[in-house]
């Protein structure tokens, strides 16, 4: 049973095709990587999958529902099944709200029956799920390191127990150690939470660390969909081989040549 499926989805911007006939399925509990060069259409695909942009043709389904066949209110309610984490953790948190309030915000929109007490418990549980102590709920976003802020963003994305969380470049603004902590957390969540994840990144190693399956996007088309390590080993299609070739490990410093 797939939590997200796209069938022949196309998006035009002016005369340019941002996405052309993209079809894919994400199964429940599965973790999928999405890689591609700048301008390949990754961000558009994320927006379409989250129901933030309506494709010009093709169908999006969340589970069995087509969000664009639903009423506006029903579509909004259905969004509770999806969570999202973006690149700039600090920018996605309101600096004037306590972290607990930011994490609990989706509950106010989608689980109005909950009492304040129950909401607090759900926030505490979400913090625990991302490995942060409960006291974080009473802190302000500016006191967070980049890695912590990204965990908080994950807690907010997970609080409605969504079927799918989409992460757009979740580690590229972080230093190596903070990125490692987020990837470790991702590893735990993919094994234990039962939630499906789509991780979009230009860091091929980060994608391979968390996702067994990988999609490659090139000029708006899905050009590969397969087992991550096998794809990397084959270094095809060309977009992937260019990404592999661009890895900085291939530089030869002067000291090594002398």
């Amino acid at each position: 049973m797939s939590v997200l499926s796209l069938a022949a989805v196309s998006v035009q911007r002016g005369s340019r095709a941002l996405l052309a006939e993209v079809s894919l399925e994400v199964a429940a509990g599965e973790t999928v990587g999405l890689v591609g060069e700048s301008g390949a259409g990754k961000s558009t695909l994320v927006r379409v999958a989250l129901g933030l942009e309506r494709p010009h043709s093709g169908t999006v389904r969340w589970g069995i529902d087509d969000p664009w066949a639903l009423s506006t209110a029903a579509r909004r309610a259905a969004r509770a099944r999806l969570g999202a984490v973006f690149q700039q953790p600090a920018a996605s948190l309101n600096p004037r709200r306590l972290i607990g309030a930011s994490i609990g915000e989706p509950l106010l929109a989608h689980a109005r029956a909950l009492s304040a007490r129950e909401r607090q418990d759900r926030v505490a549980a979400a913090l625990a799920q991302v490995g942060l102590p409960g006291q974080f709920a009473a802190r302000w976003p500016d006191a967070l390191s980049g890695g912590e802020a990204q965990r908080v963003a994950l807690a907010r994305a997970l609080i409605l127990k969504p079927a799918l969380v989409i992460l757009d470049e979740p580690t590229s603004a972080l230093d190596a150690s903070a990125a490692a902590s987020v990837l470790n957390l991702m590893g735990e969540l993919t094994r234990e939470s039962g939630t499906a994840f789509v991780i979009v990144s230009h860091d091929l190693a980060a994608v391979a660390y968390v996702a067994r399956r990988c999609l490659v996007l090139e000029a708006g088309r899905l050009v590969a969909d397969g087992e991550t390590d096998a794809l990397y080993a084959s270094a095809t299609p060309p977009a992937l081989s260019r990404l592999l070739a661009a890895r900085t490990e291939r530089f030869v410093p002067l000291s090594a040549t002398r």
């Binding site: 190596a176 150690s177 990125a179 490692a180 990837l183 091929l204 190693a205 980060a206 391979a208 660390y209 390590d229 990397y232 080993a233 890895r247």
Partner: peptide, 12 residues
């Protein structure tokens, strides 16, 4: 810092 960077290929 080096061990924090995931390797591109297995083993991981």
């Amino acid at each position: 810092l080096m061990a924090a960077c995931p390797p591109l290929t297995p083993p991981r």
